[in-house]
């Protein structure tokens, strides 16, 4: 009962992803990412897309563990940095950049109307493909190191080329199987089924944290 009572107070309204606002926010987001070296521009501009576009599916909950781990890294950076002010700036910059990159990848899996279906699938399969190839190349490289240590001249290039080609071929078979498995389980549209585009209290907290970051940066620059 207490749980229901608490839920009653959480603001709960849907966000229309088909509107032009979402397109506008993505453009802003792209611009922000391209100017990542300026922390003030980054933080101030990241609040808007966070508020309008990227929240609504428990982003806060998904990024909580990552941010806890990041907190320790940031503390070490601030302590070890020669200048305290720039240390804090660097820490905040790292945190915000990490959050934005994670949000992009969380968003890729979702149904954004103006991103073509093929491109979305291509991005997801490319990210998966990197790990497949890494796995294949690592095994091949290990066996190569054990069997033939000192390769020189043309033989070296020949070996590298054969290694890439065989890795790609084996990786292709595995990729096909992974693709078929995803299709069997509902396809790439399946990612959207459990998403409720709702704005909740934790998302407000997420935006609030970013606002505090922005405040700290502005305060440090004014001081």
């Amino acid at each position: 009962m207490c749980e229901n009572f608490a839920l009653h107070f959480i603001p709960d309204f849907a966000f229309d992803f088909k509107s032009d606002t979402s397109k506008f926010c993505l453009v802003i987001f792209a611009c922000v990412i391209s100017f990542l070296k300026d922390p003030r521009a980054l933080i101030l501009a990241s609040i808007l897309p966070a508020a309008l576009f990227f929240i609504g599916d428990n982003i806060f909950k998904k990024l909580l563990r990552l941010n806890i781990i990041n907190l320790f890294a940031v503390i070490i950076i601030i302590i070890t940095w020669p200048d305290f002010k720039t240390g804090i700036e660097a820490g905040i910059l790292i945190t915000v950049r990490m959050n934005l990159i994670c949000i992009i990848f969380l968003r890729i899996g979702f149904n954004i109307p103006f991103v073509p279906e093929k491109l979305r699938v291509l991005i997801i399969m490319t990210v998966r493909g990197v790990f497949i190839l890494r796995e294949r190349f690592y095994a091949s490289l290990m066996s190569l190191r054990l069997r033939a240590k000192n390769l020189r001249g043309l033989l070296k290039f020949k070996t590298i080329a054969y290694l890439i080609a065989s890795g790609l071929l084996r990786g292709s078979e595995r990729s096909e199987r992974i693709y078929q498995v995803i299709e069997m389980r509902g396809g790439f549209k399946g990612f959207n089924q459990d998403i409720k585009n709702k704005f909740n209290l934790r998302d407000v907290l997420y935006i609030l944290i970013f606002t505090i970051y922005a405040g700290v940066i502005i305060f440090l620059n004014a001081a």
Binding site: L122, T126, L168, S172, S175
Partner: peptide
Amino acid sequence: LVRTALLSSA
């Protein structure tokens, strides 16, 4: 699509 994605990864 899958082959394109894999070559993109490469």
